[in-house]
């Protein structure tokens, strides 16, 4: 019921949604994160800590499954070089009820952003390169979950 994939390959949102839907319930929530066009972004490179990524995402998914009644959780996160508009992350949760699906999906994203060992490096149109820094709002969103 928990499916976690990390790699350079793009994902098929429709196929992944059907996979979750096929495991029961009638309430499916999903979040797709893409490379945002903020004006002059040329590309985004995602690095991760392979041995820890799987473990961290697995623990987040297990926590979601223990705290909400879910039929399925899918987390897909891409790594490597991405361009504006490319998919980065996909989280889908399947439950019997809307609230459980939406809340658990939000919980997984909040934790993923602050716990899973991924790092983004952006390259601007003028060639400037910079590692993206942690955002206080992401930390606050993660900490608000008292679980």
């Amino acid at each position: 019921m928990i499916k976690i994939e990390v790699g350079p390959a793009d994902f098929d949102i429709g196929a992944e949604t059907l996979h979750v839907a096929g495991q029961g319930g009638g309430a499916i929530a999903s979040f797709v994160g893409q490379v945002r066009d903020d004006g002059n972004l040329a590309s985004l490179e995602l690095e991760h800590y392979p041995a820890m990524t799987q473990k961290a995402l697995g623990e987040i998914a297990e926590k979601a499954v223990s705290d909400w009644v879910l039929h399925a959780v899918t987390i897909v996160h891409r790594v490597g070089k991405l361009s504006v508009g490319d998919n980065i992350v996909l989280v889908i949760t399947g439950s019997d009820h809307r609230q459980a699906a939406i809340e658990s999906c939000s919980f997984i994203m909040d934790k993923l952003k602050t716990v899973a060992p991924f790092w983004k490096k952006e390259t601007r149109a003028d060639g400037a390169v910079k590692w993206i820094e942690e955002r206080a709002s992401d930390v606050e969103a993660s900490e608000k979950w008292k679980r």
């Binding site: 820890m52 473990k55 996160h77 994203m109 991924f118 820094e133 942690e134």
Partner: peptide, 24 residues
């Protein structure tokens, strides 16, 4: 597994050092 600068190394085989994460 996450640790703090005060965490004991114990018998750990791997120590990772990195900036705050920025995935998602």
């Amino acid at each position: 597994d996450y640790g703090l600068s005060t965490s004991l190394i114990g018998s750990a085989k791997e120590l990772a050092i990195f900036p705050p994460v920025t995935g998602g």
